[in-house]
Amino acid sequence: MSVSIDIAGLRPERVAVVPSPLTELGMALHALSEPGHHPGLQGWVTGVTARLDSHLADRMCEADFLWRTTFSDLFMPFAGIPGRSTLPGATLTEDMDLLDKLSDEQFADAALEFTCAPDYDLPSNSVLADLSLRRRALDLAASRGPRQVRFTKRLLADPPRVRAWLRQFLQDCDEAFFSDVWARVRHSLAADARHKTELLRHKGLGEALASVSSAVALEGDGTRITVDKLAQGRTTTADGGLLLIPTSLGWPHLQVLHRYGWQPVLHYPVSSPELASPPSVEQLTLRMTALSHPLRMRICRHLARSAFTTGELATAHGVTAPEISRHLSVLKKAGLITTRRRGRYVLHQLDVTVVARLGSDFLEGILR
């Protein structure tokens, strides 16, 4: 599975790497709501939560589905401006001014995108105009609790009122904690953006994307970007541009805005503890599948303790050597075992470091 961006005809000058204060505020809200996703931010989350005004904390829960279970496109309003070439604002106020430029239809559709619906990257009617979509939005909200139902009803009935509520809420978050965060991270984000921009100018888009994440690749003919994710989607730059938005708070999330009609955005973490070559989704699937067989699990138990030949494993498990060979082939293809030759014997051993990383690799893969 992957998300692809068709960039055929994209001119180099239409690719921009720019930090966004509003996007980073959205990621801060996500980290506060889901601290388990961000173990490196536990200290910051604890400190902010302890100081947070109770009234603001209650309001933070009022619409937390915008940043908790999904990361709403409302935090990247520049992507929805007609012309598909608008850059993020230099300040939070400028970014929120861009949010104000979205139509009520765009605002409502982005706010009520609770799940990755099949028509996210396809043209569709607005939830404000289509009665069947309104019913769907209310049904989805009902399955997620009364707070979401109340917010959805308010938004469908009076979009300007909810827009004003959200802007005031974001301003209050800035005063309460985000201005300090932005002052701390904006310089490193700007430095990363300059570095990626230099790579774009001197080495091309492929090198710049490789520096974003090993999960992002420019396909062979240079007309498509593929992002390795446990999600399926597609979009195109068409006559617009492509934005790369760095985040300091975002690891392990690597996000792709591929909403139909919006400018594509790659939202990537900087200074992450990402491994030099994290496994692809396909590799991760191979490893999990390889370990799901009970005999292969028992083989791994032996190979974790010492190196064994195929014949030794066959004797230990009471099966034929060809059957052991087939299981070893599956484990080797998944990258879970190593082999070495000793004279005329081939010894197999479990790669304990790879297995030890499976938990974190799996978590990163599903959160990516």
Rank of each mutant, 00 (worst) to 15 (best):
L66I: 09
H37S: 11
L347G: 00
I366T: 10
H327D: 15
D221K: 07
S124K: 15
W251Y: 12
R342F: 11
T247S: 15
S143E: 12
R341C: 02
A356P: 03
D104N: 14
P146I: 05
S20H: 05
D192F: 00
P159F: 07
L10I: 05
H253D: 06
S280A: 00
A141D: 09
K332F: 01
Y120L: 14
A90H: 13
A183W: 07
R154A: 09
L266R: 09
L209W: 01
H258P: 00
P252A: 01
T226V: 09
A190H: 05
P77H: 03
T237L: 02
K196N: 11
A90E: 15
T235V: 03
L166P: 12
P118G: 15
L138G: 00
T339S: 13
E34V: 12
R167S: 04
V18Q: 13
R224E: 15
A304R: 13
F362N: 09
D158N: 12
E364L: 08
T235C: 06
R135A: 07
L286N: 09
N125M: 03
F75S: 05
S360Y: 15
T115W: 07
T285W: 14
V265W: 02
D139Q: 06
A110N: 13
C116Q: 15
S85Q: 13
H202I: 05
S72K: 09
E323V: 10
K196S: 11
A142G: 09
E113I: 01
T152R: 05
E34P: 00
L350R: 00
Y268F: 12
Y260W: 14
T115M: 00
V352I: 13
G9W: 09
H327C: 04
L66M: 06
E34Y: 08
T320D: 11
L170R: 10
A111W: 10
R368F: 09
D119R: 09
F151M: 04
K203S: 15
Y260L: 03
P269T: 08
A111H: 10
S54Q: 14
E62F: 15
R298N: 08
V212P: 06
A50Y: 05
R11Q: 11
F177A: 04
A314P: 05
G365Q: 09
L122K: 13
Q263M: 11
L92F: 01
V15G: 00
E113C: 14
M27T: 12
E198M: 14
V354Q: 06
R68C: 10
R84D: 08
L52H: 03
G240P: 03
L170W: 15
A356Q: 14
S132F: 05
A215C: 00
D228F: 06
A50T: 14
S214H: 08
R234I: 11
L170K: 10
P77R: 06
L140I: 06
V17N: 08
G359S: 13
D158Y: 12
S214V: 02
E282K: 14
R154E: 13
R84S: 09
V330R: 11
R84F: 01
T353H: 15
G204H: 03
M297K: 12
I324S: 00
R161L: 09
R150P: 07
E105L: 03
L92C: 02
P35D: 02
S214Y: 00
H327W: 11
L74P: 06
R136I: 01
K101T: 10
R342I: 09
